[in-house]
Write a protein that binds this DNA or RNA. Structure first.
Length: 591
RNA sequence: GGGGUCGUAGUUAAGAUGGUUAUAACGCCGGCCUGUCACGCCGGAGGCCGAGGGUUCGAGUCCCUUCGACCCCGCCA
């Protein structure tokens, strides 16, 4: 039996010792971060989740414990009692928070030994991600990622504080629920009791939170896991966490202002960062026009300008023909273009092909003319007009893309970010929030040959666009809004439909027959007939918010046990095969 | 489904044009060392070059297949 665990309790965290503790007796427990054995005196940096403390074993003070300390290796777990003292003069270590003091050990117990870890934990050295994920429990001992998870915990706590204080009720909703059409692919769970039937894990608690509004809960929230069986990215995991919020008797402005308050509260309490409210708002159309994306990074300019008018009748057929087919021509301008070499410029042709563009034209603006592969194809008037439109001066570089509107926007929108990163135009200390409003209600899906909901099928259309529902669905705007932070969509929501007749109209516009709507959403349509209040809400991607707050590049660095890009867990080896007995119990057969 | 980067001691990496015994640093093991803090000094062990096949007198290096990690496109209401 450990005499420390049964008799003596930890008195302090290693990382909290300061000069104020000098003279006091402390009991520490932690991991051996580093050991420096001088043959005589032995120093150990002992680590816990707060930080490091130097503990000292001196053979003259206590030969027996010093002998024991010789056995100590990296990552051994120690319990020890000792006295905090000031370090001898000129022996302080200013790079450690606890560097002014050290602990002279007079009792030691090795609580556990450790094999040599597969990678060293005492540096910030880059370790390959498959090793990190396989030994995630060791990776999570590293201070940087521990700090991320601690910050995440504080952000979650402050979210709850704020919402509770503002009268919200946290209510849990089912994980075993009904598969719904529309949206992402569902993760399915077979039902043993009902052979051949499946639950789906929720892509979000959307319908349940609306039903809670019908029930009169008025202000609901939940910090909740959601599941989507789609391909992964640096900021996408198959299971992720949302801050889910819904309110009754509110307009867009009410939801926006309470959530601006939420963001300000979290950033203030967790990061000590004062956010300026209200956040700017721009419409979806404006975002696309100016930035090419509905999640613009507004920390830098490089805005898109439209050259279609100037070039639609150009003798340069490449441009005029594209316009003739309904295409557009847009451009961005980089000041001080010397920073881009000729090779940089030519390499961009490969870059833009990723986004479906056939190419990109560039022009170095000179005092009289351009240096540009397309200079000889354009008239002097066109050159002048373009310079004027772009407000270009000598030394600037202009990038021009001509194609369908969506390819042009996609290409320039991403090129904008690419160039900003390459040219260091982004101040990493800035948090630039923007609301995007008036999203289109529908997107046309080429694959499904029908309109699909841009947000989701329960989103209310703008009243003034109701008449367009049957005649011109592409131009119906939704009462939907996204919150964008530094070019990441961190949240989105809408005012919902609360009338059964409007909901039916939308289902019709989406190509759902009454019967299909009945089977898929009958319970919701029923509920709408029993006094549903006007309501709306929002959901935030909690992991993404934490990524931005911690400044990490990968969502895996803010999740304790993440999946790989192929949606597997290298630690547990999930997913894995199951026994034939398990399958039979579920009435399943592998095809 | 598609495009790209990568895989060499425990770890991180170096290994032009194919050519003897595959390097280095850190880590690990042993020895020495009483004030270090990336402690120092001396010595040592450690490799099926992701896996399989092929070309060749000869492959870490070239070709094919395959596995895995990461980034991107599609996808993600």
């Amino acid at each position: 039996m450990s005499r420390f665990i049964t008799g003596k309790k930890r008195s302090h965290y290693c990382g909290e010792l300061r000069t104020s503790h000098i003279g006091s007796e402390v009991i520490l427990m932690g991991w051996v971060h580093r050991r420096r054995d001088h043959g005589g005196v032995i120093f150990v940096d002992l680590r816990d989740r707060v930080g490091l403390a130097q503990v000292v074993f001196n053979p003259e003070v206590n030969p027996e414990i010093h002998g024991e300390a010789h056995r100590i290796r990296s990552e051994y777990v120690l319990a020890l009692k000792g006295t905090v003292r000031a370090r001898p003069p000129d022996m302080e270590n200013p790079s450690m928070k606890t560097g002014d003091v050290e602990v002279m050990v007079d009792e030691l117990e090795i609580l556990n030994e450790s094999r040599t870890p597969p990678f060293v934990l005492d540096t910030d050295a880059e370790i390959s991600e498959n090793l990190r994920l396989k030994y995630r429990y060791l990776d999570l001992r590293r201070q940087a990622i521990q700090q991320n998870l601690i910050l995440r915990s504080r952000a979650a706590a402050e979210t709850r504080n704020y919402l509770q204080k503002n009268g919200f009720v946290e209510i849990e909703t089912p994980f075993l629920t009904k598969s719904t059409p529309e949206g992402a692919r569902d993760y399915l769970v077979p039902s043993r009791v009902n052979p051949g039937m499946f639950f789906a894990l929720p892509q979000s608690p959307q319908i349940f939170k609306q039903l809670l509004m019908v029930s009169g809960f008025d202000k609901y929230y939940q910090i909740v896991k959601c599941f989507r069986d789609e391909d992964l990215r640096a900021d996408r995991q198959p299971e992720f966490t949302q801050i889910d919020i819904e309110m009754s008797f509110v307009s867009e402005d009410d939801i926006i202002s309470i959530n601006e308050g939420l963001m300000a509260h979290i950033f203030q309490t967790v990061l000590g960062k004062e956010l300026r409210l209200p956040f700017p708002r721009i419409t979806y159309n404006e975002a696309i026009e100016r930035y090419g994306k509905d999640n613009p990074d507004t920390r830098f300019t490089l805005e898109l300008r439209d050259l279609t008018d100037i070039l639609e009748n150009s003798d340069f057929m490449v441009f005029s023909e594209i316009v003739g087919r309904g295409g557009v021509i847009k451009a961005i301008k980089v000041e001080d273009g010397k920073r881009l070499s000729r090779k940089d410029l030519d390499d961009l042709n490969n870059y833009v092909m990723t986004y479906g563009a056939k190419g990109i034209s560039w022009a170095r603006v000179k005092e009289k003319d351009w240096t540009s592969p397309i200079f000889k194809f354009l008239s002097p008037t066109e050159i002048t007009e373009i310079n004027k439109k772009m407000e270009a001066e000598e030394g600037d570089v202009i990038f021009i893309v001509a194609d369908t509107p969506s390819i042009v926007h996609d290409t320039l929108g991403n090129l904008r970010i690419h160039l900003a990163e390459k040219l260091n135009l982004i101040d990493p200390s800035v948090f630039a929030f923007t609301w995007i409003t008036e999203f289109p209600m529908f997107d046309y899906s080429d694959r499904e040959k029908r309109y699909i909901a841009t947000h989701h099928p329960f989103t209310s259309p703008m009243e003034e666009d109701l008449a367009l529902l049957e005649t011109d669905p592409a131009n119906v705007r939704a009462r939907a809004y996204d919150l964008v932070l530094n070019g990441s969509e961190i949240g989105g929501g809408s005012i919902r439909i609360h009338k059964q007749d409007v909901q039916s109209l939308i289902f019709k516009a989406l190509g759902l027959t009454d019967e299909e709507a009945r089977t898929k959403f009958g319970f919701l349509l029923d509920a709408l007939e029993y006094g549903t209040p006007p309501h709306g809400g929002i959901a935030f991607g909690f992991d993404r918010i934490i990524m931005l707050m911690t400044g990490v590049e990968s969502i895996r660095d803010v999740i304790a046990f993440p999946k790989t890009q192929r949606a597997t867990c290298l630690l547990t080896d999930a997913p894995s095969a199951v026994s034939i007995e398990q399958l039979m119990e579920l009435s399943l057969k592998i095809v």
